[in-house]
């Protein structure tokens, strides 16, 4: 079994990898982002980034977490309806700056961590990059 094949089993997910747009995608259902980060550490995947999207109307946000595993780009989408998701900073220190940037640009709270200003001045308004995705793209 390859490390890629082992990930859904480790996470107890019945979904399989779907390859689209250069990324191996896996929908995790109810599995949380902290369990995902722990599993990624276990297979020694390298964290790359989180891409944030504001969904149309009141649908919330989609956060796509990306890791690299032996040259394969992995993607894990999470949809959040409230402006909050668990931080993985303590499990995966490499997320520090991108969590801070998304917090400032989209006003999303990564629960369980403290922030220092990264791009904005202290006290500046959060959510400077808010822009809804068109419904068709958000699907």
């Amino acid at each position: 079994m390859t490390p890629l094949e082992s990930i859904p089993l480790k996470l107890g997910v019945s979904e399989t990898w779907q390859f689209a747009g250069g990324v191996h995608w896996l929908n995790l259902g109810s599995v949380g982002v902290r369990a995902l980060a722990a599993a990624m550490n276990e297979v020694r995947a390298r964290f790359i980034t989180i891409t944030a999207y504001e969904l149309p109307k009141d649908e919330g946000f989609r956060l796509e977490y990306h890791w690299d595993l032996n040259g394969n780009l992995l993607g894990f989408p999470f949809t959040i309806t409230q402006k909050s998701i668990d931080s993985i900073f303590d499990i995966c220190p490499a997320v520090d700056w991108i969590e801070r940037e998304i917090h400032e640009e989209y006003s999303i709270d990564f629960a369980g961590r403290a922030y220092e200003p990264l791009l904005l001045k202290p006290g500046a308004t959060l959510g400077v990059n808010l822009r809804e995705l068109p419904t068709e793209v958000a699907k």
Binding site: A20, G22, V23, H66, V137, K139
Partner: peptide, 8 residues
């Protein structure tokens, strides 16, 4: 076409 594409 509608979608997301990623390159590294």
């Amino acid at each position: 076409s509608t979608g997301t594409s990623t390159s590294r």
